[in-house]
Design a binder for these strands. Sequence first.
DNA 1: AGCACGCCGACT
DNA 2: GTCGGCGTGCTC
Length: 741
Amino acid sequence: LIYQLILPLPLPRLFDYRAAPEVNPATLGIGVLVTVPFGTREVAGLIVNISTSTSIAANKLKSISAVLPLPALSADFCDFLRFAARYTLTPPGMLLKMTLAGTMPPPPPVGEAIWQRLATATPTTCKPGSKGDRLLALLPNQTTTLTTESLHAAGLTASDAQALVKRGVLARRLQETLPPQPDPDHHQPQLTAAQQAAAAELVVSIVPPTAPAQHLQNLRPPAPRPPAPRPIVLQGVTGSGKTEVYSEAIAAALRHGQQVLVLMPEIALTTAMLSRFTQRFGAAPLVWHSGLSSAQRRAHWWAIARGTGRLIIGARSALFLPYATLGLLVVDEEHEAAYKQEEGTIYHARDMAVARAHHDKIPIILASATPSLESHVNIMQGRYAQVRLPERFGGAQLPSIQRIDMRAENLPASRFLSAPLVTALQETVAAGEQGMLFLNRRGYAPLTLCRSCGHRLQCPNCSAWLVLHKQRKKLQCHHCGYQALMPEHCPACQVPDKFAACGPGVERIAEEVTALLPHARVAVMASDVLTTPQAVAELLARVHRQEIDLLIGTQIMAKGYHFPNMTLVGIVDADLGLSGGDPRASERCYQLLQQVAGRTGRANKPGRALLQTFQPTHPVMQAMTAQDQTAFITAELAEREAYQLPPYKRLAALILSGAEQALVQRVAQQLAHAIPQDATLRLLGPAPAMLALLRGQHRIRLLLVADRNRSVQDSITAALASVPIPKALKLQIDIDPYSFF
DNA sequence: AGCACGCCGACT
DNA sequence: GTCGGCGTGCTC
C-alpha cells in the first residue's frame, strides 16, 4: 500500500510512502500522524490518502518509520485541511503546521500520586506487624489504590509506600486530575422572552454526536451522518445579549460531551470577555492565541487534542487545531476584519470556520450586531439561517445619530471640531457625563510638508508619508517602523522652520479639545500609547472611576467596552473609510459607526452620536442617521453589483514584490499574459500596489475579478505553472482580499 | 523550510 | 593548501 502524506513544510504536493516492516499496517489509516525520513532528516507527516499505486520511482520511495503517539485526526478534518489549502492556494503543509502548532511531547501529567499492589506481592512479602505488612493489608487486591491521604489516615506515610515500590511490591502512578470542566448549568442567566426564543432556535441545531468519538474511526466503515446543518447568523444590536444567547447553544453542546470553539477577533480576547464565560460555566475557558507561552501552548494543545479541554476561546489560528470531539463553532463579531490573516498563510478565519463546520457536519453560529454583507446575501439566498435579537438588553435606547455637514462649518485649516460638536462636548462635561471622540489615525498629523518648497516628509522605505508624533518628538512610518527626528531644515530646500502639520491625528484632536475645554480631563487611547493589555485595563479603569471626562482614540476604543456614563460620541472624520479604492470601505465605516455609537447610552442615560462629514448625502451617512440597516444594505449591494465587487464577484489579488523594480515589472507582465481572460474572468493590472514601495520592496498587483461559479484558483495555478517566479521575487496570493494594501 | 552540494575569499 | 561564505536545488 502507498500512503500519501501532508508534510508540515511549504511544499505544494503530497508525498508517497510505504510502511516500514516494523510498522503495523493496521495502525496506519487516514488521519494518523507518523514520522518519515525526508531528505536527510526525519519529519512528521499526516496520512490523508491510501492508494495502491504511485507515480514515484520505486528506488525513491521511502517508508514510514513510526506512528506518532498522538491522537489520530478524523478523515473529515483531513478533507477540511486539503480543501482549505486548495481554496487559499497555500501548501497544505503550512496548514498542518498550524494544526501541530509546534507539537511537542505530552506535558507531564498533573495529578495525585496513588499506589497499587503488583501481582508479585504475596501475603508473606512483609514481616507480620511491620509497616509494609500493615500497608499491604489496606490493599486486598490489585484494583484497590491508596492515596497519600489514605496512608496518613492509617498512620503511614508516602515514604512507607515508596519503600515497597523499591522492593517491587507496589506501583506508583499519577491519578491525572482534569482541568476544571465547564458546567453547562453553572449559572443560567435570566433571559428575556426574545432572548429565550432566540436561544431555543440555536439549541435545536445542537445534536448529539452520531457515534462516540473514537480514535482511528477511519479504519472502520464510515458511519452514515446527517448532512451539515446550515450556518446560523445570530444578529443582535449592541447590548442585546448575544453572548448570553449563544451560551445556551454552548451549554447544549457541552451537555452532549462535545467540545465548543468560540472564535474571537484577537483584540476581543480580553480578561473581561473570559470572565463572562467563567461566570456562566463556572470554569475558565481554554484560551488559544499567538501570545501563549510554549508551556501553555503545549498544555492547551494536548487538552484540545485529547478532548479534556471542553470550551475553547481562540483567535483565528485556533480554527486549525485537532479537536477531539468538536460539536459547535461560534464566530463572535463575525464581520470583524481581524479575522482576515494578511501575512504568511493568508486566509479568512470566518470563511474557513464555515468550511470546517461543513466538513465536520456540525453547527456554526456567526454572531454580530452588523453582519457582513456576505452573510446578509447568504441569508437572502437561503444558504444561512438567521436568528435576530431585536431589543437592547435592559431597555436601553440606541443613541440618536446626527450628521454635521462640515462643508457649512468653514473651519480654519488647523481646526477639526465643528461648533455643534464643541457645544455638545461642553454640555456633556458640564452635566458630569463622559464623551469620546473617535478618529482612526494615530499620532499628531498624517502629513508634514515644507511651506517653502512643498516637500512632503516621506518614508525612505515605503511610498507613505511620515506621521508626526509630537509627544515623542518623532516622525514615524506606520508601515515599516522607520523613525526619525524632526529635521531642522527642509531636506529638499534647506529652508529652516517652515514645516506645517497637515490633517488631524488623535494627538492633535486632544490638543484642540484641551484648548477649547481647559478644565476637562482628557486621555488619548491609541495602540502606540497603550502598548500593554495592563495599560489598556488601567485606562479603562480610570474611565470607569470617572477620572476621565473625554476619551480620544482610534479603533481600539471601539471594541466592546461598556462605559455607563458615556453619553456622547463624536466621529471626527466619518468620511475616512469612504475614500480610497477599498471595496469594503463603506461597509466597514458603517459597522464601525454602529459599533462606536453603541458605546453610548447603555445604562439609563440616553446617548447621542455626532458624525462630522463632508459627504452628508452619501448613502452610508444617510443610513447611519436614519438607523435603517436594510436601506444601507440595499444601497451598498447596488453599488457592489454596479462595480462588479464581492459578493457578486470573486476577487483574487496577486502581489509580486522584490528589490529590483524592473524585474518585478517584467515578471508581473509575464504573469498577466499567462492568465487567460474570458467573459467570466477579468484581469486588472499589473499596476503598482497600494503601497508601491514597502520596506524597500517594490510591489506590483494583479487583481482577478471572476464570476462566483468558476474557480479563480485554477487560473492562477495554471499561470504559475508556466511562469517561474525568480528567487529574488516574492509572490503573495490573496484569495478574497479585504485590505487593498 | 532545511539541508547538502558547490564554487570563490581570508586564515592556520 | 583548508575553513566557510551563502547561491541553487531537491526532498516521496
